[in-house]
Design a protein around this nucleic acid. Structure first.
Lengths: 131, 131
DNA sequence: CCCAAAATAATAATGATTACTGATTTATCA
DNA sequence: TGATAAATCAGTAATCATTATTATTTTGGG
């Protein structure tokens, strides 16, 4: 795969971010550098990069799809109040998957897992930016 | 909540189904009984019923949202070839959730979990209807 | 340097879902 | 039972994220 200026910019924006961005967030950050970049380019490259495994595309039920610089983490937590996404590092559902495969004969290739709840800040009432 | 004819019909369609239906599938089945029912009514009632916990609304990444008559099952498997959805009954990720809550101080209320892979039939090459 | 393949910007199209509107049904209670 | 307010409806328009299209530009290998 070629790495055009736009593709490199998009990857670097995601890499230097705290973690998870929506396509629109990437688009807005990209326009600060290249004001002519188009939203279609952002989508095309985010999808291309996730297809080759450089980043991960994560569907968040009830919210916009996010793109994650870490291609290998799989479990996420979403605060229902502030919307922030956190990773569950180190956790794995291998045992559940193994058990399911043995019982059913199905083969599992990937998983989409999102836990929903209140983050520490929103729980205690501290101010938590973002809708 | 009131149970209008339309709402009851929608609930009974889901209850008598094998398990998971999209809004459009519910709409088509509903029109067989009441040819004047509108798609908006189907959406409104599916959402209303899932909000009070009578059914469950499940986001399937890369596919249409489905509505599940079983309000309490949480884990699902989706075949990437035929698109069929299966339940993972009896499985639970309580341990992972407990661990995450203790480590982070967050509170988890619900989870959305979809495993993706090949079902037994598609794996062995048997004919598997549906896209 | 040239040329085919890949990538781009800009815009149109798509498709699921929600919002709106005015009409109809249902619940409540005097 | 009859009136009145609240809930729900059908039909349609609007929204919003995402993808497709197209004509143009960039790029890397020979």
């Amino acid at each position: 795969m070629n790495y055009s200026k736009q593709r490199s910019l998009i990857l670097s924006i995601l890499s230097s971010s705290e973690g998870h961005l929506t396509a629109d967030e990437v688009y807005n950050k990209a326009r600060e550098v290249n004001e002519r970049i188009s939203l279609g380019t952002v989508y095309r490259n985010l999808n291309a990069l996730s297809e080759v495994g450089e980043i991960r595309r994560i569907n968040i039920p009830g919210a916009n799809t996010i793109f994650d610089k870490n291609a290998h983490k799989h479990l996420h937590f979403r605060c229902i109040k502030c919307g922030k996404i956190q990773d569950l590092s180190g956790e794995s559902i291998d045992k559940i998957v193994d058990n399911f495969e043995q019982k059913t004969g199905n083969k599992v290739y990937s998983n989409d897992i999102v836990l929903n709840g209140l983050c520490k800040n929103c729980k205690t009432g501290e101010n938590c930016v973002k809708a």
